[in-house]
């Protein structure tokens, strides 16, 4: 997917990250994260779990470069984020992070295609329309490009959201409760797409969720509690075994960049 110079270098490298919020004019300090260290490698499918207040949202904000840690270091694709200015953070978000939100957060008066083109406005991207069409095709909405969000089902809206996150080929797809607002069948649809993107296109996926069955699709589950990592389990691809839909599908390569997908670097994790 990407040109990470060193295949051993993690996409996400978090070391001893602490996030302290000051509340009530500095009288109360809340440690939302307390010494978290995580490495996430290219091509991984990771779920971050935890109850509300466990610090998972804070961790997601830091991974997504929406926020910076109070202490500790965070590297995304080898770049140190913790000391960046707002504009540099915006730049990193623009190039390295694709957000999928719980509420799809599409702009209601734009077509699906225009919504997917939106992130490419920030930066110099050629062939925006082609890329956006390819991204929509990738999530199975190639025939819905000119529909507005209100003309699409909840699952389709979220698929547009995923296409928008993918269109710039980010280092990581960061999904925050991506199925939180969906019914069972739409949830399955979205989770299948995310699994496909990871397994077949080698996209690094981080899903933040509090639902066990959503986390069950991931290859690795990190659980947070009170701002600390309490477990970090790597599993044997339950999703692929559990979802017959995935089996019969032809192997696809991500067509966005027209580049050949690099072999997925799952080595050593027993995911092959």
């Amino acid at each position: 997917m990407r040109s990470t110079s060193n295949p051993d270098q993690p996409v996400i490298r978090i070391r001893d990250v602490t996030k302290i919020y000051e509340m009530g004019a500095g009288t109360i300090q809340v440690r939302a994260l307390d010494g978290v260290s995580i490495d996430i490698h290219d091509g991984e499918y990771v779920a971050i779990m935890g109850a509300s207040g466990s610090g998972k949202s804070t961790l997601m904000n830091i991974i997504g470069c929406l926020d910076v840690p109070s202490e500790g270091t965070y590297h995304i694709d080898g770049q140190a984020v913790e000391a960046m200015s707002n504009d540099r953070l915006a730049d990193i978000r623009s190039r390295k992070v694709g957000f999928v939100f719980q509420t799809h957060n599409l702009l209601p008066r734009l077509t699906a295609l225009a919504n997917v083109e939106l992130p490419m406005m920030y930066g110099h991207w050629p062939n925006r329309r082609d890329r956006a069409e390819n991204a929509l095709t990738l999530v199975g909405l190639g025939d819905r490009t000119h529909h507005r969000p209100t003309e699409l089902s909840g699952g389709q809206q979220q698929r547009v959201g995923i296409a928008r996150a993918l269109v710039k080929e980010p280092s990581v797809l960061l999904a925050d409760e991506p199925t939180g607002n969906l019914d069972t069948s739409n949830t399955a649809e979205i989770l299948n797409i995310i699994s496909d993107l990871n397994h077949e296109n080698g996209i690094t996926v981080i899903v933040v969720t509090h639902e066990r069955d959503v986390a069950a699709r991931a290859d690795r589950v990190i659980t947070l509690s009170d701002g600390q990592v309490i477990s970090d389990e790597i599993r044997d691809s339950p999703a692929r075994g559990g979802n017959p839909k995935d089996k019969g599908r032809p192997h696809r390569r991500i067509p966005i960049s027209h580049r050949t997908a690099s072999p997925l670097p799952f080595g050593g994790r027993g995911l092959g």
Binding site: L66, N86, D91, R93, L118, Y122
Partner: peptide, 16 residues
């Protein structure tokens, strides 16, 4: 506000 947040998440800088 929310639209601004979306645009910021998509990489919009302050000047944008």
């Amino acid at each position: 506000t929310r639209e601004i947040g979306i645009r910021q998440a998509m990489g919009a800088k302050r000047r944008d």
